[in-house]
């Protein structure tokens, strides 16, 4: 890729021994430049590349499909505004877009806490029901439900590392925590999911 930037992504370079510094080449650099120039094919390619990622991020963070669509749309709107003035080399565009979407998600999560409401996103009863047929969709719903019940930061860590497939350094940078703290959140989150989904694991009754 022409002109790929290789820089310290996190600003933590001074805290890491040489060789462990976070470096990156932005795979979106050329696409963002073309979007900024108003290239219609690039705009549509950006939609194909980023909209599903933003929707998945928001859906798993919020557990509400309507809110997730709103967040994904708003994140993309901000991407359109940012593209013409994007300065390559400062950060990966994908990381920046994740930051935008996460902030939008946290705004909504905060609002939920501040305005108690009886109207919550649909959640399935995940009480023990070994006689219930464990259809594949049931397991998917159960996983989503278990994710939704995790503390926000544990869920965020798992969503960023597992589903969004960001590196540990990218995820820690987005969450503004150390890699060690990220690993702690991941471990606790995975442990909680394992316990919550014990009945859905291969070998469990009904599976």
């Amino acid at each position: 890729m022409a002109g790929a930037a290789v820089l310290d992504l996190t600003g933590l370079g001074a805290t890491f021994p040489r060789g462990r510094m976070a470096t990156f080449a932005d795979p979106d650099e050329d696409l963002v430049r073309r979007v900024g120039q108003g290239d219609p094919a690039a705009i549509q390619a950006m939609v194909a590349r980023k909209l599903p990622r933003m929707l998945a991020l928001a859906q798993r963070m919020l557990g509400d499909p309507v809110e997730a669509e709103d967040v994904a749309q708003e994140a993309m709107v901000r991407a359109w505004r940012q593209a013409p003035r994007w300065v390559s080399g400062k950060a990966r565009f994908d990381t920046w877009l994740h930051r935008v979407a996460l902030n939008l998600c946290y705004d909504r999560l905060r609002r939920r806490r501040e305005v108690p409401t009886d109207i919550m996103p649909d959640r399935r009863d995940d009480g023990p029901a070994p006689d219930r047929g464990l259809h594949a969709a049931d397991i998917g719903f159960a996983v989503n439900d278990a994710l939704a019940r995790l503390p926000d930061r544990q869920r965020e860590a798992i969503v960023l590392c597992h589903y969004q497939e960001l590196s540990n350094i990218e995820a820690a940078g987005l969450m503004e925590i150390s890699v060690e703290a990220l690993e702690s959140l991941l471990s606790r989150g995975r442990r909680a999911l394992r316990l919550a989904l014990a009945g859905h694991r291969p070998g469990a009754e009904g599976v």
Binding site: P52, A56, R60, A137, G140, V143, N144, R194, R201
Partner: peptide, 9 residues
């Protein structure tokens, strides 16, 4: 394997 069962929207 369980995490992979979460359907992507």
């Amino acid at each position: 394997a369980l995490l992979h069962r979460s359907p992507a929207p």
